[in-house]
Nucleic acid binder design. Structure first.
Lengths: 229, 229
DNA sequence: CACAGTTTGTTATCGATGATTACGAGAGGG
DNA sequence: CCCTCTCGTAATCATCGATAACAAACTGTG
């Protein structure tokens, strides 16, 4: 038989699969776990403490899942894959996810910091591959914020924000902007504008945007792609 | 003297300025509003009903605030300004914002749909100006999802995700990707890569990415910038 | 004015819930 | 054997959401 603490955590997690966190009564937890009420307060001090413990347990699963994410030779693609696995976890564990990422009270689960660090490390692998244009701290926080936003909107308003193309759209936007690795649409669009300016310059058939040209020259002055700040 | 319903709503809103929505007791509301307990249930049927009414009232303020947003001749800049005003509202009314955008229970405030429609209309003004690359429905939902995500992360984890540059980063990423209106960083970054390839071609000092060149030629085939789908 | 109907306010109460106390059984180590 | 630590039981308290019963005030009509 497992220890009382594990049974309480397990019972709470099982009830979380159906009800919301705040809709679960401590009595239901105790009955399912086969323990008495004081056991909760001996182990966790508080219902809030129990919930944060459950949230941290959820973060363990969440992070273990993310650590299994592939590390291919394309770190930007890995970033997108991590985004998708994040969304899958949220949709698969709605109440647990809300408990983890929108906690009530003032005691926050410490797993969120690890999640942030994990995303940041994935971003740093992009930087090491020369495919990052932003500071890794900012890039990681931006990606995680947008990722959580897409998930929470999908969970709270499934009929209005539940479609998966929203996730893909935001994912490609944020990951693309942070890494400079625009997907085909963006790259071709920008390239078209620039190439038209160049063609116009060479043939003399179109005016050149002087400001754009200035920016281009300025960017070209140090010939190596920007690797520092 | 105002009506009982208004006093209840006002008292709840005042208490929301300090406590969380679920931490407010109906008795405290009644005492502050100067009404008896049954009045809440006569007016709103339920505590949940009262909370959704308060959320809808918050949406009215929120939407009125957004409708006062400027309509300049640059709809993309208007989109960014609307994003910032959204963030300001969230930071100024944290508990109300969480009640509005992460409601508990199954009865959702209907203001969220109006908020989505308002963002979509702002996006459609971008499309009418020829500055949209995505379907307006998807663009509006993407922007709102990311916007809410940034706000909720800033509210739930202020020390980890409270900095304003996250909001700007995600804002420029999503708005830029949706409209194709990249800010200087993105544009210069992409232009640098392309110009380096062109310089390399002209001087013969660097290899040319054949695939990128193919895409460029394909994009240039119809000389006018894509204005339709 | 008298009367009926509606709304509003008061009091009391019920069931559920979070939290706590007191107490005891059992295990393991000195 | 005794001590301590963990776990389980039962009883209890305060609070909260919700409701019932009833009184007071207001409103419109004849």
């Amino acid at each position: 038989m497992s220890t009382a603490r594990e049974r309480i955590l397990g019972a709470t997690a099982e009830l979380l699969a159906t009800k919301d966190a705040l809709a679960i009564s401590t009595r239901a937890i105790c009955e399912r776990a086969g323990v008495g009420m004081p056991e909760i307060y001996r182990q966790f001090g508080d219902k809030q403490g129990l919930l944060t413990a459950v949230a941290d347990l959820g973060f363990e699963r969440f992070l273990a899942n993310k650590r299994r994410n592939p590390h291919t030779d394309d770190p930007v693609a890995d970033l997108r894959a991590a985004w998708d696995s994040h969304v899958a976890f949220a949709l698969g564990n709605p109440h647990l996810y809300r408990l983890m990422f929108t906690p009530t009270g003032d005691v926050k689960p410490r797993g969120i910091e690890e999640a942030r660090a994990l995303v940041q490390s994935a971003v740093e692998r992009c930087r090491d591959a020369g495919r990052l244009r932003t500071a890794p701290e900012l890039a990681g926080r931006s990606i995680l914020s947008a990722n959580v936003g897409v998930c929470l909107m999908a969970l709270c308003f499934p009929d209005l924000f539940g479609m998966l193309d929203i996730s893909q759209s935001v994912r490609d936007a944020v990951v693309g902007a942070v890494t400079g690795d625009d997907r085909e649409d963006t790259r071709i669009g920008t390239a078209t504008v620039l190439a038209q300016a160049l063609v116009g310059t060479l043939t003399g058939t179109a005016a050149v945007d002087a400001a754009a040209l200035d920016g281009l020259v300025r960017a070209l002055r140090p010939p190596a792609p920007p690797s520092g700040t």
